[in-house]
């Protein structure tokens, strides 16, 4: 029997992606399945005899995570709130920097290299290395307590601003802005890849559109909102999703650390799996909602 062109193509395609298919089944799908099974079981591991066993435990682990454990739900809510507080500033900051870097000026290469440096500096073990050390974490709380608001320059400015304008605009709003300002380093550290994604997007916009609108008398400000922003909106979707995934999966996240402790120190694999399962269900839900909302606002030029 002779194979058709299509058939040959299909076989060749499968041969090319074979490594991924095997890897995905063995190292992603299977652990995922195991994880879900373990979340509903009591797992006991006997390292001496190279054995482990799972006994069906129903919803016990899940109940423990959601109803019994003191920390988990708190961490989860705290994590979601700080994600909400960080993603918007990261989006604005990275778009702002990308627009700046899209102009030509002397030393642009250097500035670009500096802003991309966080991709290296904020990865792997380097994240939160100071808080991870057992000795330092003991004193970090004391240092925090000593560093009360009024002892620093920004603290004083903060208290003046809140006292002067707090009543007018609303204290909560000012507090949020100040919290963002205080976090500027975290924000810069979290926006390396995002800047590059935006930069790539900006470079695909045809310069003649700007030319035409400038001749019609549009200002830079109008150009930004009427041209740049709509044209870059597909990137906004990518950046928001990337930021959420990046934030939720950072290694010094509270839940990540909790999973690490539960699995590596307590050796409670069932409970650890249950936490992980709830956590990634929540992330998936957040991504689905955010993706749905933003994709309705995205404008596709072509």
């Amino acid at each position: 029997m002779k194979l058709t062109m299509r058939g040959k193509n299909a076989i060749a395609g499968y041969l090319f992606i074979a490594p991924f298919v095997l890897g995905f089944l063995a190292f992603m799908a299977y652990p995922l399945y195991q994880n879900i099974r373990m979340a509903f079981s009591t797992v006991t591991v006997d390292f001496a005899n190279d054995e482990f066993s799972m006994v069906w435990a129903g919803l016990a682990n899940i109940q423990r995570a959601l109803l019994v454990d003191n920390d988990f739900t708190q961490y989860l809510v705290a994590e979601l709130i700080s994600m909400g507080l960080l993603v918007l500033p990261v989006l604005i900051f990275s778009l702002f920097i990308a627009v700046l870097l899209n102009k030509t000026f002397p030393g642009r290469g250097f500035v670009r290299a500096v802003f991309f440096l966080p991709v290296i500096l904020a990865s792997g073990v380097l994240v939160g290395i100071e808080t991870n050390n057992s000795l330092l974490s003991l004193v970090s709380e004391q240092i925090q307590n000593a560093n009360t608001m009024r002892s620093s320059v920004t603290g004083v400015i903060e208290s003046i601003l809140v006292a002067e304008f707090g009543a007018g605009i609303g204290e909560g709003f000012i507090e949020y802005i100040l919290a963002v300002v205080n976090q500027i380093y975290t924000i810069a550290m979290a926006s390396g890849i995002q800047i590059v994604i935006f930069l790539a997007g900006l470079q695909t916009i045809n310069p003649s559109i700007y030319e035409a609108s400038s001749i019609e008398g549009a200002t830079g400000w109008e150009n930004f909102w009427k041209i740049t922003f709509p044209m870059i909106s597909p990137m906004i979707l990518v950046v928001v999703i990337y930021s959420i995934v990046d934030f939720m999966n950072r290694t010094d996240g509270e839940i990540m650390e909790m999973i690490d402790i539960v699995v590596n120190r307590w050796r409670e694999f069932g409970f650890g799996s249950a936490i992980a399962m709830i956590y990634f269900t929540v992330i998936a839900l957040v991504l689905a909602i955010v993706g749905f909302l933003i994709s309705r606002l995205v404008y596709y030029y072509d």
Binding site: M28, F52, V263, F280, L287
Partner: peptide, 21 residues
């Protein structure tokens, strides 16, 4: 879609199952 899943669910989360695996 499976490729996208490996991007969205990094192995850190599956730590306990990976360990056993």
């Amino acid at each position: 879609v499976c490729v996208m899943i490996t991007i969205l669910i990094p192995p850190h989360i599956l730590r306990s199952a990976m360990f056993i695996n």
